[in-house]
Amino acid sequence: MLKLKKLVKTYRTGDQALKAIDLEIPAGQVLALIGPSGAGKSTMIRCINRLVEPTSGEVWLAERELTHLGSGALRRARREMGMIFQEYALVERLSVMENVLSGRLGYVGFWRSFLRRYPQSDVDEAFRLLDRVGLVHMADKRADELSGGQRQRVGICRALIQNPKILLVDEPTASLDPKTSRQIMRLICELCAERGLAAIINIHDVALAQRFVQRVVGLRAGAIEFDGPPEGLTPDVLTTIYGEEDWEATIEKAEDEDEIEAAE
C-alpha cells in the first residue's frame, strides 16, 4: 500500500535525517515508529506527504509515485493521507466544525470553502465523526476552548474526513496526560480497524506503542534498526535503538498496565 524506496533526506545544514529508508506497509496495518528524539521519525512522516521534500528516493502510495508529482497532483495525493499532529495543530480561532470540515479542503473549490458552503454530505460526515469521538455537542465551540484530549479528537476527525487510505500520525500523545494518551491511542487504533486504514504512528512512549500496534519499527540516526512485532522489543533491541538503560522496567510497566486494564 505504502512503499518507501531508498528514501533519503539531507537538510541544507548537511544533517542526514534519513539514510536510504526502505519500508513497506500493507493495507490495514498499524505501525508504530519509535526512536530517540532526532532519529528522523518526524522527517520520515513529513517526507511521505512532502511537507518536507525528500532529497532522493521514492514514495509509492498504492500505484502512484509521489516524489515527482506536480503541485496539483500532489494535492490530490495528500487528500489520501490523513495527518494527525503533535500539539494538535488545530486552527485555534476557527470553530470545531470548521476545523473538521477543513479536512475536505482538498475536495472543494476555494470559494465554497471560503464561504463555508460545504456539500451536505460533508457536513453530515463531519457530524457523524464528531459523534463517534463524542464531541458533537462541541461543534460550534472555538477550538481553543477545548482541552488537549478533545482537541486531539478534533484533529483525528479532520484527518478521517479526508477519507484517507493511510494515516500519518506524529506524536499524537506527546502533550497529553497518561490516561488521555491511552484513550487517544485506543481511539486511533479502533478507527483504523473500523475503516481498514493503514497508519504510521510516531511515538516515543515505547510501552504505549507495544500495547496497541501490530508492528514496531525502530529508527536510530535515520536508519531502521528494528522491524518486527512488539514482542520482539527486548532490552537488547531497545539498547541498540536508544542506548544503554535499564529497559526491564519499561517492558514490565507495559505488562502491569495490561493487568490494570484487565482489572478495570
Partner: peptide, 18 residues
C-alpha cells in the same frame, strides 16, 4: 441518547455561527 442527537443533526444545514 447520542444516536438520537446525531439523527437530528444529519441532513441539517450547517452555517458558521456569526
Amino acid at each position: 441518547m447520542s444516536a438520537t442527537e446525531l439523527d437530528t443533526l444529519i441532513g441539517r444545514k450547517w452555517r458558521k455561527p456569526p
